[in-house]
Simulated assay, not measured.
Amino acid sequence: MTRNQTALLVTFWDQGGWPRFKAGVLKLGEQGQYLGAFLSAALFSVTVVAMPLLLDREVDFITAMITSVRVVRENPVVMLGWAAIIVVTMLLSLVPAFLGLIFTLPILGHTTWHLHQRTVQPAEG
């Protein structure tokens, strides 16, 4: 495969009910990379502090998502650094046959909780 091609695994069912796997190639080029980066950034900015906020306070999910986007807009450098730390940590934890996730996921969750505590101020009243 060339640099601008992405492999796509497609499952076809034969008449006996058994899956038959065929690998097809989907040419996306750079547009697919940009789309993936955009979707990842959007998902990160919507959920980075929304999940801990939903656990911490009695708010609806729309308010939590708006708060999360606001935090990302107010602290773009910090959030970009946090996203990079998440990516590197997750990639390193996948190396030992996914066993690193046993340690990585609780640490990232705990750190995200503290990030939420520092960035989202308590409601007045």
Score class of each variant (00 low, 15 high):
Ser40Trp: 10
Trp18Ser: 07
Asn75Leu: 07
Ser45Ala: 11
Phe44Trp: 08
Ala64Trp: 00
Trp82Tyr: 07
Leu80His: 11
Val69Gly: 01
Gly16Glu: 12
Ala41Leu: 11
Arg20Glu: 15
Met90Thr: 12
Thr67Pro: 08
Leu35Gly: 09
Leu53Gln: 13
Arg57Glu: 00
Thr2Ser: 08
Val95Ala: 05
Ala42Asp: 02
Leu115Glu: 02
Thr11Leu: 12
Asp56Gln: 15
Met51Tyr: 14
Ala37Glu: 07
His116Trp: 13
Leu35Phe: 07
Met51Arg: 15
Gly100Cys: 01
Gln121Leu: 03
Pro76Ser: 04
Glu124Phe: 05
Gly17Asn: 02
Ile62Gln: 04
Val120Asp: 00
Arg70Tyr: 08
Gln31Glu: 05
Asp56Met: 09
Arg118Asp: 02
Gly16Ser: 06
Met51Ala: 15
Gly109Ser: 06
Leu35Glu: 14
Gly16Ala: 09
Leu115Asp: 00
Thr63Trp: 00
Met79Pro: 10
Met51Gln: 14
Ile85Leu: 13
Leu26Val: 10
Val10Glu: 12
Leu101Met: 15
Gln5Leu: 10
Leu99Gly: 02
Val87Met: 01
Gly24Ile: 09
Ala64Asn: 02
Ala7Arg: 08
Trp82Ile: 02
Leu35Asp: 13
Met1Gly: 07
Phe98Gln: 01
Thr104Phe: 06
Ala97His: 07
Thr111Gly: 10
Gly125Met: 06
Val95Ile: 15
His116Ile: 01
Val48Lys: 11
His114Leu: 10
Leu39Arg: 14
Gly100Phe: 01
Gly109Tyr: 09
Val78Arg: 13
Gln33Met: 12
Leu91Trp: 10
Trp82Cys: 04
Lys22Ser: 06
Gly24Phe: 09
Trp113Leu: 03
Gly24Ala: 09
Gln121Ile: 00
Ala97Pro: 08
Leu35Thr: 11
Leu101Cys: 09
Thr11Gln: 14
Val77Ser: 11
Asp56Glu: 12
Gln31Gly: 05
Trp18Ile: 04
Gln117Cys: 08
Trp82Asn: 11
Thr47Leu: 14
Glu30Ile: 06
Arg3Lys: 12
Leu105Gly: 00
Val25Cys: 03
Ile66Ala: 10
Thr89Trp: 03
Glu58Lys: 12
Pro96Thr: 04
Ala64Asp: 00
